[in-house]
Amino acid sequence: MAVQAILFDLDDTLIDRRATMPKYAARFAADFADALDELTLEQLERAIVETDGGGYRGRDKFHDLLATLPWKKRPAVEALIEHWNTVFPQVVEPMNGLFTLLNQLAVRGYRLGLITNGQSERQNAKLDLLGIRDYFDVTLISAEVGYEKPDPLIFLLALEALGVEAEEAIYVGDHPQNDVGGAEFAGITPVWRRGCHPWPADQAEPEHQFVTLAEFLLWLEEYVS
């Protein structure tokens, strides 16, 4: 069947978390300046990146920041959580070529969907700050729908909302299990954005993969031709 719909992950696929971290570290340093002992921005950014775990750690990462950073006056863990949830979405950086990608896909008539794990307020704030919400015909956030990747049900909900069959869609994401594995379980062709999460050494890499969004567009042209 011809490809009718393209589904995307958000973080580390359309949003560049690596480019965002220096901006977040700068805000963190400014907002907690009175509470932190002296350290460089590079040291702070490294600590934040290491405790973040690529976006796949929960409350524990904030406890680790409390234990790792040189505090003069240690804040409550809730203050760090609130700062992350409020400030990180304000400083997110798009992947290079994001708007070229979305505009070209819209011109070509593809139905577009977004499936992202995370809290509703934080993920919605990212979409609004980047101004990309209206590109998508359906947006599913795990906290809002009650399922999260790699559960195939969240992928099937997206297909139903778009009015397409699994064979008519492809899914683009960076995480081997949540994105590639979840899409495969739902019967959707996965396309792996490599370079963030390593592929498991005991498994064969996906047939379809890319690094930059420009590469994805080139891949798509060949795939549908």
Rank of each mutant, 00 (worst) to 15 (best):
N124P: 00
G55I: 02
T189C: 10
G97T: 02
L213E: 05
L98V: 01
L218D: 11
I141A: 04
I48W: 10
L66K: 11
F28Q: 08
G54D: 05
I170L: 14
M21W: 05
P190W: 04
Y147C: 05
A30Y: 04
W84F: 15
M95D: 07
F62K: 08
D179W: 04
I170H: 07
F88C: 03
E93A: 13
E222S: 15
W71L: 09
D52H: 10
I48C: 09
L218P: 00
G58E: 12
F185E: 14
T51Q: 13
A47Q: 07
P150V: 01
G113H: 06
P22A: 08
M95G: 06
F88V: 05
P198K: 11
R193K: 15
V138C: 14
R57A: 04
D9W: 03
Q203Y: 07
D16N: 14
A67S: 09
A166W: 00
E205S: 10
P190Q: 09
A183F: 02
D37F: 00
T51E: 13
G131I: 00
P152T: 09
A186Y: 03
F155R: 12
N178D: 11
E144N: 12
R17Q: 13
A47R: 09
R133P: 00
Q209F: 02
T51P: 04
S225P: 02
D151N: 15
L44T: 06
A67V: 00
I6W: 06
I188W: 06
I115K: 13
A35V: 02
V49H: 09
L217T: 10
A183I: 00
E160P: 06
C196I: 15
K149P: 03
V191K: 12
E165Y: 01
L153N: 08
K73Y: 04
A79M: 11
G109V: 02
F99V: 01
A161F: 00
F216K: 13
A25Q: 08
L157P: 01
K61W: 01
T116I: 03
Q203G: 04
W192S: 08
R108M: 11
V224C: 13
L153D: 06
A25H: 09
I132H: 08
L80A: 09
V91N: 09
P190R: 12
Y223N: 11
F32M: 07
W219P: 00
N96F: 03
W84M: 08
E45D: 11
L218W: 02
D174H: 08
C196Y: 15
L130E: 08
R57W: 02
R193A: 10
I15T: 08
E168S: 12
G195W: 01
Y147F: 15
A204C: 00
E148F: 01
L220Q: 10
V138D: 06
R193N: 04
L112N: 04
D137W: 01
G53W: 03
G181W: 05
D60C: 07
V91Q: 08
H208D: 06
W199Q: 10
S142A: 12
A2H: 07
A201D: 13
E222N: 15
I48D: 08
T20K: 06
D134H: 14
D179M: 06
R194K: 11
